[in-house]
Design a protein around this nucleic acid. Sequence first.
DNA 1: TAACTAACCTATTCACACA
DNA 2: TGTGTGAATAGGTTAGTTA
Length: 195
Amino acid sequence: MKQHTLLPTLMEKNMNHLGVDPKKKRLSNEQLELLENSFQDEIKLDPDRKMKLAKELGLQPRQIAVWFQNRRARWKGKQLERLYDALKQEYDAVSRDRQKLQQEVMALRAMLKDHVAKNQVSTGYTDVSGEETVESTSIPSSDKHQPVAEAEAMTTVTSLHQMNMDAECNYQMNMDDYNNTVMIPPYSWATTSMP
DNA sequence: TAACTAACCTATTCACACA
DNA sequence: TGTGTGAATAGGTTAGTTA
């Protein structure tokens, strides 16, 4: 059950020389240093260590426990901050890649449109002359092949689009994987030692 | 198995130091 | 005197113990 033992000892000590009722008093540098060192050793506080620290620092065990609780909360906040920064960097990088891919897709689409238009024109000529025009892209075209070429071209665009979609899906999946790996279930973070 | 207990958590309050 | 920081509190969850 909760322990609501307040701190008469410390308070009394502190108010004696001030003539006031200090309800909250900052810990001294020495006390903080020792607590900090202890926290760096182990984020969790076992009862023996709590008693030892309390004795050593002249504080109530409850104060030691509270200090560790607050320290863990601050530590977790920092961890979340770092995690946020890492995720943001990752997101920015993926975002840039996505934009680049989209630009490539647009360029390829434009090329394809141009290519199809030229094929249609050249097909018009071949209808008359019977000659076959070969584009620099080496895609064969004739009145017989033209629908096939268009279909292939459309397939290419669809594939590119699919690749783009896949990239997005992969990113989503990776983020999910990352979340499953990194997201910390309640309280479990506290059982891990300091990084 | 329910009740109790201790330790922990998050959210909040509040005293104090300082610009 | 407003604000940031940290000690302390409130209330909830979890896990171990016991009758």
